[in-house]
Amino acid sequence: MAIQIGNYNFEGPFGSLDALRNASGVYAILGCNSPEQYVVVDVGESATLKNRIAGHDRQGQWKGCGYGTLFAAAHYTDASTRMRIERELRAIYNPPCGLR
């Protein structure tokens, strides 16, 4: 599966973290109330995506956004690129969770 977020192809969206790799990249947390209608709830970057999402301190905020289902999507890339992509996507989507 793949989803376009900004100008980037992300793997996902996945309803389970089992599908994610514990590798360097950018993640997007997506809310969904109807099929194929995703909203960017949060964007972040990490050297270990799967671990970061699994233990994320904003999980309560994600759930508090009111979406029926939450999904994760990942774009795997190196450290300098992931930081640039995170900033770019935050500027585009202004997600309700995390730094603005």
Rank of each mutant, 00 (worst) to 15 (best):
Y38T: 05
G44I: 04
K63M: 09
G44F: 02
K63P: 00
G55F: 12
L49T: 09
W62G: 01
I53F: 05
V41P: 00
V40Q: 01
P35T: 15
L49D: 06
S46Q: 05
Q59D: 07
A47N: 15
Y67L: 00
L30I: 06
G25P: 07
D42H: 15
C65A: 09
P13R: 03
D42F: 06
R52S: 08
T77P: 02
P35K: 15
S80N: 11
V40N: 00
T69I: 12
A79Q: 14
V39I: 14
S34F: 02
N33Q: 06
V39T: 15
A28M: 02
L17C: 14
N51L: 12
P13F: 01
G68S: 13
G60T: 06
P13W: 01
S24W: 10
Q59N: 13
A28G: 03
P13D: 06
T69Q: 13
T48Y: 11
S80C: 08
V43H: 02
L70C: 04
H56D: 07
Y38K: 00
A28H: 04
W62M: 06
A73E: 04
I29M: 10
C32N: 09
N51M: 09
S34V: 15
D18L: 12
G64E: 08
L49A: 10
G12S: 04
A73T: 02
N22R: 11
T81E: 09
G60C: 03
Y76W: 07
G15I: 07
A23M: 10
D18E: 14
G12K: 03
H56W: 07
D42I: 07
V40F: 04
T48I: 12
L20S: 05
G60K: 07
R21S: 13
G15Y: 08
I53C: 09
T48N: 13
V40E: 01
V40S: 01
I29F: 01
Q59P: 01
N33H: 00
D18P: 07
D42A: 12
E36S: 14
N33P: 00
F14M: 06
L17T: 15
R52Q: 12
A54Y: 07
F71T: 02
N33S: 15
G68Y: 12
A23F: 13
I53H: 00
D42E: 08
I29H: 00
A74W: 01
T81H: 11
Q61C: 08
P13H: 02
W62E: 02
S34Q: 10
A23R: 11
F71D: 05
N33Y: 02
V43F: 06
R52A: 15
G60Y: 06
N22L: 05
G64Y: 04
A28S: 14
N33I: 02
V40R: 00
T69K: 11
G15M: 09
Y27V: 11
A79C: 12
F71I: 03
G25D: 05
G55M: 05
F71H: 10
